[in-house]
Write a protein that binds this DNA or RNA. Structure first.
Length: 219
DNA sequence: CCAGACGTTGTT
DNA sequence: GTCTGG
DNA sequence: CCAGACGTTGTT
DNA sequence: GTCTGG
């Protein structure tokens, strides 16, 4: 699955890779991004395609309060259209979540070992996501998202059975385009075919407050 | 028709 | 809002 | 994902 | 054990 990731890419490079306008929020390298936090997301609306901050943890429009978001951090690619919570978002509110790596905890004789999984060239990837707007009278609107998961590929399977859906660079535009037929968009969600590298890291990463470079250093 | 749920993961 | 179960 | 809290009453 | 918060 995907419950923690990193984004250490410099701002100017991120803007260039995802071909978006200059950022309108404070950006800094992140080594330990956790659910419920506001994270940079590429999405399109009437103002065009741009990078904005969305809360990680999908809050459906019908939720009584936003706390449900902490339990809806992922959405299974296989069942996106079958789930009332995600269906409309899959059709018209797809997004890309920039990340240069993600963490998986592998069970190794009785304890859990965190691994950092990343592209060998350390370039940022785009995780497939869906976003939503929640609003109740008398409160600020909440813009939130879930990261879509697929079956782990052969490189990851020994660590975990699920992984984030990584949209290849060439497919990013089609994934974001609301004109793309839903069936075609969903066909882009498949186990990643390019190379990934994984190595064990410090349990420093277990604690979300430890957002430091040592999180991605091999041990 | 209305009522009630609506999600994922991991573990058992 | 939308789907499923009764 | 992991970490950390998990309850009420009354009083300050 | 289970839920919430980060």
């Amino acid at each position: 699955m995907c419950g923690r990731y990193s984004l250490t890419t410099p701002e100017d490079h991120l803007v260039e890779v995802f071909d978006v306008p200059p950022l309108t929020f404070d950006y800094r390298a992140r080594y330990n991004i956790a659910p419920t936090q506001d994270v940079p997301v590429v999405a399109s609306d009437k103002r065009g395609t741009r990078l904005g901050l969305l809360r990680w943890g999908f809050v459906p429009a019908w939720a009584d309060d936003p706390s449900i978001g902490s339990r809806m951090i992922n959405a299974r690619a296989e069942s996106l259209l079958d789930k009332p919570a995600f269906k409309q978002a899959a059709v018209s509110r797809r997004c890309l979540v920039p990340a240069d790596g993600f963490y998986e905890w592998a069970a190794e004789d009785g304890h859990k070992v965190p691994y950092w999984i990343h592209s060998p060239d350390r370039e940022p990837m785009g995780f497939a996501g869906v976003w939503e707007r929640w609003h109740h009278r008398g409160t600020e609107p909440v813009f939130s998202m879930a990261i879509i998961t697929v079956d782990a590929n052969d490189q990851i399977r020994h660590l975990h059975d699920r992984m984030p859906a990584i949209v290849p660079a060439a497919d990013r535009k089609a994934w974001l385009d609301t004109e793309t037929p839903i069936a075609e968009a969903l066909s882009l969600l498949k186990p990643y075919e390019l190379a990934l590298e994984a190595y064990p890291v410090s349990t420093l990463v277990n604690r979300p407050a430890n957002d430091v470079p040592d999180c991605i250093e091999p041990v």
